[in-house]
């Protein structure tokens, strides 16, 4: 009876290995199997993850300040402590919630990429909200605000986007990078590299680092709609280094199955900005390839 049920549910001998697409149920099973609770917590907290990554010698984005409580927020003075261009991130934010970017400064006012001015009290209010846990989901009452210098993208990459920072997502199991994509902001996505906001997702060939396929909201494209640059065949600069970073990220934080978010800095080359313990599976639609078959190729038995 139990065995029959197992077979019906696809939990039998061959059932687990069948198919090439990784569904969310199987992804959750993998995360349960390989990502221990404490490692997930560490990955979720950008500050803790950054410490772990830096301890492992992985190149990360820089840090201006970490504000962990109201005392530190009260002592913080943006006009004194902030550079000309910066990014404020909630340490436990998800999906880019609560990230504020300033690209230039005039006197005591900063400006967003869109040109909206950010006076000092607005910046302080944002920091206050971040520390209050306003962007951190339901669980956390308090959060830390992570302030980083703004990353300027590698000119080879920034040439193909109108504005914003393209970032690479590499999904890996243990030390093996499995699948990768690059998220390219568009005018429609307001400079954000978020696929839900109509940024371009472009699948990358793991061997060569060349873009094989580009998609906006499910529609395949060949050229960037805003800049007109041909995307198919574009080679990501420093691809070997990206793969090397991605393969080290998971073990450094303690994750078996993870997605590393990597940006290409103009000076420092590939830098890890974040390690995701629950990487999404939309990357399969963008690469038009199944993750499950690639995971199976690493010798995984899915038990």
């Amino acid at each position: 009876m139990f065995k029959a049920f197992n077979r019906w549910l696809g939990l039998g001998q061959g059932g687990l290995m069948e198919g090439e697409i990784l569904g969310i149920n199987m992804r959750n099973a993998l995360i349960q199997k390989y990502n221990p609770r404490h490692a997930i917590e560490r990955a979720r907290d950008k500050v803790a993850a950054k410490r772990a990554l830096e301890a492992a010698g992985i190149a990360c984005t820089g840090t201006v300040a970490v504000l962990e409580d109201h005392q530190q927020v009260a002592d913080f003075k943006p006009t004194r402590d902030m550079p000309d261009a910066w990014a404020i991130k909630p340490a436990r934010g998800s999906q880019g919630d609560g990230i504020l970017l300033a690209v230039r400064r005039e006197g005591n006012t900063w400006f967003k990429g869109s040109g909206t001015p950010l006076p000092e009290d607005m910046v302080m209010h944002h920091i206050q909200k971040v520390v209050d846990g306003g962007f951190s989901g339901d669980s956390a009452a308090e959060d830390a605000a992570l302030i980083e210098p703004l990353i300027i993208a590698d000119p080879a990459l920034s040439r193909i986007v109108p504005e914003g920072l393209p970032d690479l997502r590499v999904i890996s199991l243990h030390h093996t990078p499995l699948m990768a994509m690059v998220r390219l902001p568009t005018n429609e996505s307001d400079g954000k590299a978020n696929l839900h906001q109509r940024a371009i997702g472009a699948g990358i060939d793991m061997e060569t680092g060349k873009i094989t396929r580009a998609v906006v909201k499910g529609t395949p494209i060949t050229h960037h709609p805003d800049t007109g640059v041909e995307l198919i065949g574009f080679e990501i600069p420093g691809w070997k280094r990206v793969l090397e970073l991605a393969s080290k990220c998971g073990p450094a934080v303690g994750l078996g199955y993870c997605g590393a978010d990597i940006v290409l800095d103009v000076n420092d080359g590939p830098l890890v900005i974040e390690v995701n313990a629950h990487p999404g599976i939309e990357i399969q639609n963008i690469n038009q390839a199944g993750l499950k078959s690639r995971i199976a190729a690493t010798g995984e038995d899915f038990r």
Partner: peptide, 16 residues
Amino acid sequence: RYRGLRLSEIGRFAPI
């Protein structure tokens, strides 16, 4: 303990 695709994922990955 079901680990297969969800019904909605058939539609989601059908383009592949």
